[in-house]
Amino acid sequence: MNLTLRIWRQPGPRAPGKMVAYDAGDISPDMSFLEMLDVVNERLMQRGEVPIAFDHDCREGICGSCSLMINGVAHGPLRGTAVCQLHMRTFKDGDVIAVEPWRVRAFPVVRDLVVDRGALDRIVQAGGYITAATGAAQDANTILIPKETVDTAMDAAQCIGCGACVAACPNGSASLFAASKLTHLGLLPQGQPERYRRALRMVAQMDIEHFGGCTLYGECQEACPKQISIDTITRMNRDFLRASLTVGRGAVAESD
């Protein structure tokens, strides 16, 4: 199949960028979207041009590196699929495909389609863990956890940290990302001691990183390659509300 790509090119973090058109001739429908970009890059290099930079690593939909806005949709048209798992058979011959990086202030563009998602790591630093120093653990079966609880925790724990939720959110909110972690840890017995402190700190960090608030648009859930539910956001709001009424400001003060 033959396609026309319109791709965001930006030589560096501070340099201005623009959409540039490329033809992608005889593309196999069995290629993944990234393999299609590989082919385009190979051709660019043969013509002595600079290839298009994009983040990718596992190409199995699990590492969360790939991060492309395709025709205005994060990770492209296929539901519950990271772009590395998107295959060209979902497009038609002659399609024009616009490809852009995630766009929010918290994810500055590094080059072309590559952005810096360090803000997500910093949200995790702000309490997105259970403090369990190595060596201190008791036998794994001492605490029983109902299957349903673990399954719900796992649904949230699947987050691959790709940032598509942020990219798709009209507010540029990282709520789904933070909420999935808060839900995963907040559901498990091991996560209880730090539960409310965690909620306060992670929410505070989202604001510090200049992510937007949540209007409950629901776009994040749709864009999420792991189909994480906005129920997690409800849970985050509940924990935060409870925390702010009980724990008070102390917990946050420590963090900032």
């Binding site: 959409m19 766009r103 798709a168």
Partner: peptide, 10 residues
């Protein structure tokens, strides 16, 4: 977004 952001479910 230069090519706009297409709302899906909102």
């Amino acid at each position: 977004y230069a090519a706009g952001r297409k709302p899906q479910v909102s």
